[in-house]
Amino acid sequence: MKRIKKAFTGLKSLAVGLGVTGRAFYAKNVTVIYPKEEVDNLASYRGHVELVGKEDAPDVPKCVACGSCAKACPSNAFTILCPVPPKEGEAASDPPVMGPAPQRGAKTPSKFILDFSLCSLCGQCVKTCPTKGLRFSNDPYLVSFTREDLKLDLLARLHSQAANSQPVPVPDTESVDK
């Protein structure tokens, strides 16, 4: 008798389980098949940071080369270079010697490199920027075979964005194919 009861509860479990999975079998497919389809909620995604252009001149960054983002970064992902002012009594060299920001007299960065292979997307740089000159991009499709490709030149990115007024994915497919 006990055995029959046990078999009956087992069969009931089986029927209930099959009922649940059977309903799911006919439900709408929820998986996004990635390479063929893409997800549609990237507007809120916080990707790597990028420079913000001035309102009146979109290819000039708001950045004042103060270096606080580089200082706030937990993983030293930023390389911001500005011309070093010549020492007293010395002539300015050509091309100028570059040094890490901040440099006296430099109000815009000459080079703004983000090493994305080090970045952990914590957003301390965006938070600390005094001019609100950094923002998150929403590009999750960064693929590369070398670490060098992930050293993103944010000034070049800003210029190309201003020229096309559309975000350009970096690195492009050619550098990936190399």
Binding site: S44, S120, C122, G123, K127, F136
Partner: peptide, 23 residues
């Protein structure tokens, strides 16, 4: 994760709660 992404920007490692409030 979709809800959290809309608030925090990421899906797993958030760094959303900062000292003094939220990001």
């Amino acid at each position: 994760l979709d809800i959290l992404q809309s608030a925090t920007g990421s899906r797993l490692t958030y760094s959303y709660i900062t000292i003094g409030g939220v990001y």
